[in-house]
């Protein structure tokens, strides 16, 4: 039933494989719970990137299992306690490596998209 997973993960408008990086990056500044996280990503992207909760929670639990984030229950003023995620040391290392990968990728894509700037094509 792996296929069903994929289907729901693909529904996100965020480019596949970048969600993890976005979560880790967003958690870098402060621990957040899931709702705050999705809001932060949306706000920071200028309302362009919308995180699907159907992807966010699986991603958070997966990252937790990998040890890149750690979760903790914190009491809240809304009533129920909230599950707050924070970046771990391993998560920080992972973020660094994912960022550099991403930068290489975007540079490469930019190179492909704008070849005229580099060579003169008749």
């Amino acid at each position: 039933m792996a296929k069903r997973n994929d289907r729901y993960q693909n529904r996100t408008e965020i480019l596949q494989g970048t969600l993890d990086m976005l979560i880790l990056q967003t958690l870098q500044w402060a621990p957040r719970h899931g709702y705050a996280l999705s809001k932060a990503i949306r706000t920071n992207s200028g309302e362009i990137l919308k995180v699907d909760t159907g992807s966010l929670y699986p991603a958070l639990h997966r990252l937790e299992r990998k040890g890149w984030v750690a979760a903790e229950w914190k009491p809240s003023d809304v009533g129920p306690r909230l599950r707050v995620y924070r970046l771990t040391k391993a998560g920080k290392r992972q973020l660094v490596s994912e960022r550099s990968r991403w930068e290489r990728l975007t540079a490469a894509i930019a190179g492909v998209l704008n070849p005229a700037e580099k060579e003169d094509v008749p």
Binding site: H33, G34, Y35, V78, P80
Partner: peptide, 16 residues
């Protein structure tokens, strides 16, 4: 149970 609680929390925050 915890997962349900987590999602309930999310919904509550969004609702508020």
């Amino acid at each position: 149970e915890e997962l349900q609680e987590e999602i309930q929390g999310h919904l509550l925050l969004a609702e508020r």
